[in-house]
Design a binder for these strands. Structure first.
Length: 938
RNA sequence: GCUCAGUUAGCUCAGUUGGUAGAGCACACGCUUCACACGCGUGGGGUCACUGGUUCGAGUCCAGUACUGAGCACCA
């Protein structure tokens, strides 16, 4: 077999995904077990705005690891995929391109043609996204792919809208909204970003009618004074008490406005008098309602001034109008002063334009009922369960408690058009279709609302609309089977925008939770901790990392960071995992190059299971009738035969690696159950590199590479390749490509390695049974015995390195130990000699070594000496031993202090005290031995 | 202003029932040991931000302080 010396990720990555997809491995239908438990995840649909970023790669890695493990365990596993039309973001992209390429706006094109451009864009990026998801190795079910503008999903949107409207939970009304003058649409509060900017606080004097007084107001937005309909002061403010009820001659206009009293006004701020512009400020709007003030809108939707602003100002941009207002006040002698003032300005999250609070007619969702659904679920059932629990559960609850109505109309074209129709008199008819609306109106002379719905309105239905629910159809096999899904993996930035709304809407329309758990991932930031952004130019494209380090290595890296923590992208660490992939490759290469006569057979790792299996198969009574000719069976069930059976005769090293493997499998499963991806990754890394490569391969190397074929060698070969095979399965959820590539190279096996649920499927590691780990195969004794061997070898190596003994120089090892250790060391003599580069191991009860020896104390009271006649540097050796003694001393001191503390001895658990005592005893013994060594050296 | 998170080896980070502080990288020394130099072996390196408390015992629990970051609210 020709196997390249270095792992080439591309080779494996290009080969397997397509095969998996074509074999139907990603669809739950691959599962042949009608009683299989289900496992489902719905992808947070990427926006068709552009290509995928590191955040997607992170989330997809975690979802894939979860899905792959459950699938391997025989769960009927569905990971549903799809994309989101992402209203404003996508429209903005297309608008930008249209302007850049053709200097045209959407209105130049008209709605129909602009929509054609939108769909073309969507096709292009949807394809790109799909290819990227494939590249990531994500095991999503393409047969159930969805897009938020699909017919069925759109129907669901209309159904939900109509229902909420009929209940009175959706209404149309005039409110102050966040208006983007560039995109010319309203935005919800959650789509607003705030940014602190340098501004001016301008003090304007308003003459009070019937007096010679002037009332000074402070404002950051002088231009809105053209829309003032009152000035407000605090009712308890002594300075202004006598002015309440009087009127003001509003400069630059011919209007007279009242002075009103309202608690909203903070007497401490500015002058304590506030100009009130109900049509251009949310607080003023509220105040205006309380005092029945007119709402005078002085702006157009592009933030230029309209006719109501007066002839002098009409057509001016808001900033030009601001300057002009200030200039005019100055001319009139009414400008008191201007101060520098830092102001937080609301900005459009998508395009960055400063928003204008604008009074406008929009559609809203009343949140009271929906909010209660979500709050009750959290209070009564603690659902959804957030991971990490703190602080998201708290943030989520607090947010729900303070929830305001949700503005859902958007003045865009890309999205679900609002299912409301108007007749010529402006009466509104909300219906599922134009036909239904016509029926309700009694006329077909209707005009549909031009606006579309907030993207998050349709995303809010994603948890069930993707399973076929569309209002007309409300019960599907998929809905029954897969909802609630098991887990949602998403970023913390959309807990409110998306997670909460899915909870509310799914609960309301399907009567179920959308998902059990929510794993909140951190943000992938650059190596300086800065958010990745196109403007800073620090965006890292996952595809580049895939090219550079391989998909598997990148996935391991992404999974290796603690769940929920931000990921400061560190290519050096990805390189570590690239090296790890190469290590796996070469360990497998070694096993495969020595695999003649080997077969993958789990019973090599658990012979007792085979015995039990055979007994079950032939029945206890028949066993007694077996004779010499049934040797094959006898070997397995009769102890005296088994002794000679290489399959059952396990060395300490074998038992050790089997124990380590099972321990690892249990740890990995437990970690994944708790969404501790990083723990699973680190356990796998340690097991594979430290246990399997550093020790097991080295310990059995001679046996495996023996030239002469024989049953013992072949058993050893089978054993190591079976351990490897199990390890590949454990690694598969994180490293799908390399594990499949290697798994396909494994020698023939006499049993089906698939989970029984996939007995007839095409052979692939992704359907192999995922090892759960067997507690019965954890062998504490073998682990501690092996630990002693490892300690001995390490000590010798340490001495060799510190004494500068050449690798070619063979040494003699003198070891004094008790009977048990004698057995362990002599059983592993060959390995010890090889790995410690020694030519002789002499085991005795008492250490008798020449003066010119290097010595070390081992745990369990064993002692080691290496005669170094002519090689030893006494001064150096003394130094080395003294260093060791100092270390032991420090530890002993700490422990003895504890033991001499009466409170500790009496109050700490007995076993803890015993443990400390045992450690002190061990240290004392070592110290004694090392002191003797020093004596001998001097 | 409120809330939350982080502060552990030179760097990036692990460390969940409180009980001997870990990894990778970097660094130093030595290795063409027949799977791997994307490698092997060995080693040095930490008053776990600070102050106080609870406890026999605190990186871990509690309170506060400092710095860093995030979210929310307010902003005439």
């Amino acid at each position: 077999m020709e196997i390249p010396k270095a792992y080439e990720p591309k080779t494996a990555e290009e080969k397997h995904y397509q095969r998996w997809e074509q074999a139907g491995c990603f669809a739950p239908e691959i599962n042949e077990n009608p009683n299989a438990p289900k496992y489902s995840i719905v992808i947070p649909p990427p926006n068709v705005t552009g290509s995928l970023h590191m955040g997607h790669a992170l989330q997809h890695t975690l979802m894939d690891a979860l899905a792959r493990r459950k699938r391997m365990q025989g769960f009927r596993t569905l990971w549903l995929t799809g994309t989101d039309h992402a209203g404003i973001s996508t429209q903005l992209q297309v608008t930008k391109r249209l302007w850049a390429d053709e200097r045209k706006t959407r209105w130049d094109l008209g709605r129909a043609e602009f929509m054609d451009r939108m769909w073309a864009w969507k096709e292009q990026y949807q394809d790109e996204i799909k290819n990227q998801i494939r590249r990531e190795g994500a095991s999503v079910d393409w047969s159930r792919e969805r897009f938020t503008l699909d017919e069925s999903l759109s129907r669901a949107v209309r159904e939900v809208f109509v229902t909420l409207y009929e209940e009175g939970n959706i209404y149309r009304g005039k409110r102050i909204v966040n208006w983007c003058p560039r995109d010319k649409t309203v935005l919800s509060d959650l789509e607003v970003k705030e940014d602190k900017k340098a501004g001016k606080l301008v003090y304007l004097q308003y003459p009070v009618i019937g007096t010679d007084k002037k009332l000074t107001v402070a404002t950051t937005r002088p231009e809105t004074m053209l829309g003032d309909t009152a000035v407000a002061v605090n009712p308890n403010d002594e300075r202004y008490r006598d002015l309440i009820g009087k009127t003001i001659a509003l400069p630059l206009t011919d209007r007279e406005i009242p002075i009103v009293a309202d608690d909203y006004v903070d007497p401490e701020f500015g002058t304590g008098a506030v100009k009130i512009t109900p049509a251009h400020d949310p607080n003023d709007y509220e105040l205006g309602l309380r005092h029945n003030l007119p709402q005078l809108n002085v702006m157009n939707d592009d933030a230029t001034m309209n006719g109501a602003a007066g002839a002098d100002f009409v057509g001016l941009d808001r900033y030009a109008a601001r300057e002009k207002v200030v200039a005019r006040f100055e001319e009139l002698g009414l400008l008191e002063k201007q101060e520098d003032y830092e102001i937080a300005l609301p900005q459009c999250e998508r395009c960055g334009t400063t928003l204008e609070p604008l009074l406008s007619e929009q559609w809203f969702v009343r949140m009271n009922d929906l909010r209660d659904l979500a709050l009750n679920l959290m209070r009564a059932e603690k659902s959804p369960r957030f991971v990490p629990e703190v602080p998201y559960e708290k943030t989520y609850t607090t947010w729900l408690e303070n929830l305001k109505d949700w503005t859902i109309s958007r003045q865009l074209w890309w999205g679900h058009q609002i299912p409301a129709w108007y007749d010529s008199e402006g009466n509104v008819f909300v219906a599922r279709s134009a036909e239904e609306a016509a029926e309700k109106a009694g006329t077909s002379d209707l005009r549909q609302d031009e606006d579309v719905l907030d993207t998050w309105f349709s995303s809010g239905l994603w948890a069930f609309s993707t399973f076929g629910w569309n209002g007309e159809i409300t019960d599907t096999e998929d809905l029954r089977t897969y909802v609630p899904t098991d887990v949602l993996v998403t970023g913390r930035d959309i807990i409110f925008l998306w997670v909460s709304r899915m909870v509310m809407l799914t609960q309301k329309f399907v009567g179920k939770k959308p998902f059990e758990d929510v794993v909140v991932t951190g943000t992938v930031v650059d190596k300086h901790g800065k958010k990745m952004s196109k403007t800073i130019g620090n965006v890292v494209n996952p595809l580049d990392l895939f090219d550079k380090f391989g998909v598997d290595a990148t996935r391991m890296y992404l999974a290796s960071v603690a769940t929920g923590a931000d990921i400061r992208l560190n290519e050096t660490i990805i390189e570590t995992y690239r090296n790890f992939a190469n290590k796996i490759w070469n360990a497998a290469r070694f096993c495969l190059l020595n695999s003649d006569g080997a077969r993958v057979d789990y019973y090599f790792l658990n012979p007792q299971a085979e015995v039990a299996e055979i007994k079950k198969l032939i029945g206890d009574e028949l066993i007694d009738d077996l004779d010499e000719e049934d040797e094959e069976y006898l070997d397995k069930i009769e102890p005296e035969f088994a002794k000679d059976n290489p399959k059952e005769n396990l060395s300490i090293a074998d038992k050790w690696i089997i124990s380590r493997l099972n321990r690892t499998a249990m740890d990995v499963n437990r970690a994944l159950d708790r969404y501790f991806f990083h723990e699973a990754v680190s356990r796998l890394y340690q097991f594979f590199w430290n246990d399997f490569c550093d020790w097991y391969i080295e310990l059995v190397k001679d046996e495996i590479t023996a030239e002469e074929p024989n049953v013992w060698r072949d058993a050893a070969r089978s054993r190591i390749i079976t351990v490897l095979e199990q390890a590949l399965r454990l690694l598969h959820p994180f490293m799908p490509f390399i594990t499949e590539e290697l798994w396909q190279m494994l020698p023939e096996t006499n049993s089906n390695l698939h989970n029984p649920a996939y007995a007839n499927a095409e052979k692939t590691i992704m359907l192999a049974d995922f090892p759960l780990g067997d507690a019965d195969l954890i062998d504490e004794r073998a682990e501690s015995e092996m630990q002693a061997v490892i300690e001995l070898i390490s000590k010798v190596r340490n001495i060799r390195a510190e004494m500068n003994i050449k690798p070619s120089e063979r040494v003699t090892l003198l070891v004094a130990a008790n009977a048990d250790s004698h057995r362990v060391f002599s059983e592993n003599e060959a390995q010890i000699l090889k790995l410690a580069r020694a030519n002789d191991l002499r085991l005795t009860d008492k250490l008798e070594a020449p003066k010119a020896s290097a010595r070390a104390a081992l745990s369990g009271g064993a002692e080691l000496a290496i005669p170094l006649e002519g090689l030893i540097d006494f001064a150096k050796e003394i130094e080395r031993v003294e260093k060791e003694l100092a270390k032991l001393n420090a530890e002993a001191q700490k422990l003895n202090a504890q033991l001499s503390n009466e409170n500790f001895v009496s109050r700490a658990p007995q076993e803890k005290v015993e443990e400390i005592r045992a450690r002190v005893a061990d240290i004392e013994q070592r110290t004694k031995s090392l002191n003797q060594t020093l004596e001998a050296l001097r």
